[in-house]
Design a protein around this nucleic acid. Sequence first.
DNA 1: CAAGTATTTCAAAAATTGTTGAAACATCAA
DNA 2: TTGATGTTTCAACAATTTTTGAAATACTTG
Lengths: 211, 211
Amino acid sequence: MKTSQTIPEKKLAKNSTSLAPSCDETLYATCEAVGDLIQFWGFKKLTGMVWCYLYLSPEPCSALEIREGLGISAGSVSMTLKELLHWGVVSRSTPHGERTQQFTAEGDLWKMVSKVLRERDLEQIERTLDTLRNSREALFPADRSKKESLEKFRAARLTEMIQAGNLVSGLLSKLLKTGRINVRPFWPFHLGSLVGSGARKKQSQKKGTRS
Amino acid sequence: MKTSQTIPEKKLAKNSTSLAPSCDETLYATCEAVGDLIQFWGFKKLTGMVWCYLYLSPEPCSALEIREGLGISAGSVSMTLKELLHWGVVSRSTPHGERTQQFTAEGDLWKMVSKVLRERDLEQIERTLDTLRNSREALFPADRSKKESLEKFRAARLTEMIQAGNLVSGLLSKLLKTGRINVRPFWPFHLGSLVGSGARKKQSQKKGTRS
DNA sequence: CAAGTATTTCAAAAATTGTTGAAACATCAA
DNA sequence: TTGATGTTTCAACAATTTTTGAAATACTTG
């Protein structure tokens, strides 16, 4: 939701004479762009930048190199790497009997994305769905017979939200399981703006989809 | 990335005697859950809460009602509503010659989601892609002949990221255009973990996908 | 073990973001 | 126009998040 910070002057202009951006500038800008995207996705900007720095490095990097390459503190590097390791998108190695550990970015982008989708986004959706289901239950317990219309209305809207959540959650799981999206179901409510192209009209109520 | 704040005691326990949560508590909890989800998605929590409050209201609400219902300040209500109006997910109406304006939540969840996906997420991806393409160009201009291997490596990785971005962006656009996901292509790199279920193996290089 | 270097931790500082409340503004009726 | 009420704005305040830097810890070698 937020973007660029003041660009640290750092050691950027190490070899700045040419008109074209020096390699370091380009590198930094790239890391920043990725950092922004990753921040947009809910992580810290630095997390994205460090990952990108590693991803663009043919050789494993030491913490010190990252530190200098991005102009951040030792503490930041350490904590960011810890986070990246936790997410399994960076791996650590200590070559032979060296004392300095080296870091490498996971080369498979999909692994990275899917891990986060699964462990973070999917879980957040489920968390929300739980609350919504509880709310509906509280509003509309056993007998759904005579009830104030207010509660009826709310229960109906909750149902809409829950169905939407189920749909998203289902799509996500499927994508994560098969690595492929190939689903027919579409947003099943208020079809309003949805006049999708050619395909059968089946409303798609898959068995597994509780709602 | 963050969650609950201390729950304002407000006027919650208005009619708290029953064991089951009072309606207001349930309502508040629901709004909070949605607020959290929306916050997770990059908005302010209040934005989600206010939207949810309206969405669960059969009648249009005045600013005052929201103010009291959620226990927030007049300023917050005003600014949050402004934002929601901007996103087109809430509409304003002033019944007859009344002086108090009323607010209603858009009932179509898809409209809401798609608007944000289009105007925010898609744009962020495009922004990032622009930078990545520029970087690659800077690293690897016209002649892609003899070049240091470092630059070669980086250009290759940039290409991977760009392709991934193109894929996501393409899927999103398609989804937004047709309201339906029905694509065969899958993540085209490092197939590693992807052993998708039954479907042809075509690598899918659709014409429109620049990379 | 001691010295030297690498790494982590974490309290405090900095930066950012979110909220309030009161003043300014708008609108309408009398 | 004035008074009453509803709405917006925005500077100050509050809360949260991020980053730093220095102390503590770990690890290796001599």
